[in-house]
Design a protein around this nucleic acid. Structure first.
Lengths: 155, 155
DNA sequence: GCTATTCTCTCGCTCAGCGAGATACTTGCC
DNA sequence: GGCAAGTATCTCGCTGAGCGAGAGAATAGC
């Protein structure tokens, strides 16, 4: 092909990064399928668990925006999650137009089943890294996240 | 929450890694939509471009296996890609049961449009890193890819 | 009170992907 | 050679995720 230059450690990093995301996607997809849910459901669960952890109130609107679903798709998604007993809808008494999403215990367990071992393995791997090296990795990942987020904004 | 321990630089790395994959997924999805194709189509394109680059002959069967699609889904995917002029099907004269997938110039251009700027930005970012630091990042990403791939095999 | 707006849900639709099975070609065994 | 078994791809009918349009319910601003 030869249009995209393709040599040197920088390009190795790019390729590895892509390989990592592909592998993680596939892992997530397989886990989702084993547990009778769809990749979107798993992503939704991640968002909801993150929101719960950070104390942000979760609502259908917010979730739909994060996942780039329209309202109809979001409703269908929540119907699935509620049917599986992972989430419960509650009316917000402060603003009764809103629905608050309460993550159920089972969802936490599920998230743990998926991420727990992964985190464990990763932490184990990082034990072989010196603190400065961990800091480098951290700086790099932060940079990539920022860079990609910026590209998304530029459209 | 509190079940998943959640402090220290290792956990920052885990969270960043997840954030990166989520952002990259979303970026890919948005790019796909802008160009009238689906996330799966983009992933297929990546596989096909990789195969072309490495000289591996691409066939529907191989592609379907990589993307975890069954044969019907793979056929539909290729119909889309062919209709868009990104791929052409050719009979293999060595084994006339097979179909060889030829990536069209337009697909290369498309891949470049997506990855080119991203690679450029990443390479730019890596200019601020010392060679040893790039090596650390490389080692880390390689380790993660291997780790995830292994987890996928254990099922 | 009345209109704007905001948040969620319902309805009808399109189309990606699945399971089952058809089709075409190759390989191996007699 | 000819027939059975195996392999690669495609066709058909279906399920269901997600979209667009718009309805319903509650709030905010005048």
């Amino acid at each position: 092909m030869g249009r995209i230059p393709n040599a040197g450690p920088e390009f190795a990093v790019v390729h590895l990064l892509r390989a990592v995301t592909v592998e993680l996607d596939l892992l997530g997809g397989e886990f989702a399928q084993r547990n009778g849910l769809h990749p979107t459901d798993l992503r939704a669960l991640i968002c909801l668990l993150d929101a719960a952890r950070s104390g942000t109130p979760a609502t259908p609107g917010r979730l739909g925006a994060q996942l780039k679903l329209n309202s109809a798709g979001t409703t269908a998604l929540l119907d699935r999650l509620e049917r599986l007993g992972l989430v419960r809808r509650t009316r917000d008494d402060k603003d009764r137009r809103r629905v608050l999403l309460v993550v159920q215990e089972q969802a936490v367990v599920l998230g743990e089943t998926f991420f727990g071992p992964l985190i464990g393995a990763l932490v184990g791997m990082l034990r072989d890294y010196a603190p400065e090296e961990v800091a480098v990795v951290q700086r790099f990942l932060g940079g990539v996240a920022e860079l990609v987020a910026q590209r998304r904004q530029d459209g």
